[in-house]
Simulated assay, not measured.
Amino acid sequence: MKQAIVVRSDLGMGTGKLAAQVAHAALSAVEHANSDTVRDWKREGQRKVVLKIDGERALFEIQEKAKTAGLPTGLIRDAGRTQLDPDTPTTVAVGPASDEAVDQITGSLSLY
């Protein structure tokens, strides 16, 4: 089992900002997962992978594919207090779910 967190590479976020957005997305998706899935994922080490994507539209497409597949997702929009404009979509998490299910949605993306 794993979770993929997809980050927009076109925003030029600083390291700290990027880390915060990834954390927000990871937690958000877990909140939408069923308890058995979360338990199994935790037991297996809470594996995560951070991937990159270019652009807002592509980020929304990943989210839509995950929702259609019935996978938990968490899309994050920045509050706009530091580096980005308010409501800027930054990241989306897919899973936790089986490796195969997550890979069907994010398998073509590169590591961040």
Rank of each mutant, 00 (worst) to 15 (best):
V49W: 07
P89V: 03
E44N: 12
I53M: 11
V38G: 01
K48T: 07
T68H: 14
D87M: 04
T68I: 14
H32D: 11
T82R: 04
A58Q: 11
G74S: 08
G45S: 10
T91D: 04
A69M: 01
G80V: 02
L71S: 01
R57Y: 10
K48H: 05
L84K: 09
E64Q: 15
Q63D: 13
V92S: 00
H32C: 11
G70R: 09
T82S: 12
T37C: 07
R47P: 04
E61I: 03
K65V: 02
G45F: 06
E100Q: 11
H32Y: 10
P86R: 03
V38E: 05
P72D: 03
D85W: 10
E100S: 09
G95D: 01
K67V: 12
P89Y: 03
D99V: 13
T82L: 07
E31H: 14
A97C: 01
P72H: 06
R47C: 09
R81M: 11
A69H: 02
E64I: 10
K42A: 14
I62K: 12
D36K: 15
G74A: 06
G80S: 02
L51S: 06
A33E: 04
E61P: 06
T37H: 01
T88R: 04
D99W: 12
A33R: 03
R39F: 14
D40T: 13
R39N: 12
H32W: 09
T82Y: 07
A66F: 04
T37M: 11
P72S: 02
E31Q: 15
Q83W: 10
R39D: 15
V94W: 00
A79S: 13
K42F: 14
V50F: 06
K65I: 02
R43G: 10
